[in-house]
Design a protein around this nucleic acid. Sequence first.
RNA 1: GUGAUCGUAGCUCAACUGGCAGAGCAUCGCCCUGUGGAGGCGAAUGUUGCGGGUUCAAAUCCCGUCGGUCACC
Length: 404
Amino acid sequence: MSFFSVLQRSKKSKARLGEITTSHGVIKTPAFVPVATKGTLKSLTPSQTQDIGVQVSFVNTYHLVTHPGTDIIENAGGIHEFSKLIYPLMSDSGGFQVFSLARGITQNLTQKDAENKRIANVHGDEQPMVVKIDEDGVTFRSTYDGKVIEFTPEKSMEYQRQIGADLIMAFDECTYYPATHEYAKKAMERTHVWLTRCVSQYQISNIKYQNESAKLKKHQYLYGIIQGGMFEDLRKESAKFVVEQDTPGVAIGGVSVGETKEEMREQVEWVSPYLPPDRPVHLLGVGHIDDILDAVVHGIDTFDCVEPTRLARVGILMQHVTCNMKQIGKSNEIDINKSVYKNNLEPIDELCHCYTCHNFTKSYLHHLFKQRELLGYTLATIHNLSVMESFMEEVRKQIEEGTI
RNA sequence: GUGAUCGUAGCUCAACUGGCAGAGCAUCGCCCUGUGGAGGCGAAUGUUGCGGGUUCAAAUCCCGUCGGUCACC
């Protein structure tokens, strides 16, 4: 059985219906990939994720290296066994975190600035102390225990092998925004060199662990990542190079890093003609439904994004959406924290069939959020992911029916 | 009953020797795209218990009064 098979191609666009087959199950594409950074889809039990219909999740190498450590995960039998997320998983390379967390340095206006900005400018609780960034990779100090952690293409591949996700990402440099053409070119070239090193390491690992992989059903599929920043010439050059490396999958990175929606979509459009017709294509970090729909048309198969789960945890609840672009927009979200819902006994979404909408009212969700009760986060996450899953289901249906 | 003490935004409390009445939370609005149960930006909110007095100027000092708390009868 092949890794990726296209079941149907649209006559109207580059949209396609496909299946990604891994040893942990089949992913029907186009598919949304909710993010389970630290080996957990925040607030949900694995069985809840499966009840929702989640087909695949995204775990994060940077976070798992920091804690609990990839040795721990490998000893536990890999991330599927460790987390009991027993469906297909995808892992990030750590590239995005290393560069997004170390923004102050990669922007690198002057050497003195870089010296002064050793503490990364980052939201959240992880602020790694970046020690060194060069052509070989990135070294930083974990804020968890002070341990020095090194990310190189080879190390990233090895970390990801230990984690054991089904789909893995090449180690790349996510170009910051706004970057100059000069810097974007440099970052792209570095990403390309790193990709060839990832491919070599990937091949070595596949041979070295061939028997074990077969026994433990651990075969991994590598995705090369297209970069190039905001520049058409670089994006196209990167797309050609990455596709030529013949990795099992191809991903588009460095988008949705601060540019406008239009600019983000343009970057996808530029590389669309160069994307491989017979290999899965992943768009990193994109998850607004209108953006997904736009990208599907340009031949993208999978999307990871924190949006639905993160919004759920701040009380932004999505409303049922259709593939009609005119119906997609901000009006499709409600903020359950608002007091207008205090006494509203309707479900969050009349059209939604999820556990939350089937059982609870806006009033109750409002109460849970105002009181910061844990169940609120769970119910909201169940709902938002359900909306995403039913949206993706409709996307697949419409491709099948030839309307996309 | 006597004495002490307190009374400031919806809540908890700041405000030096009398000198533009503030903060946190809550409220309202906005933001979040390879994770951030967070954070950020913005707005609204006052008869400083009440009534007098002193003063150029009172949340602040004085008198009275109402209410709370504590101690002692």
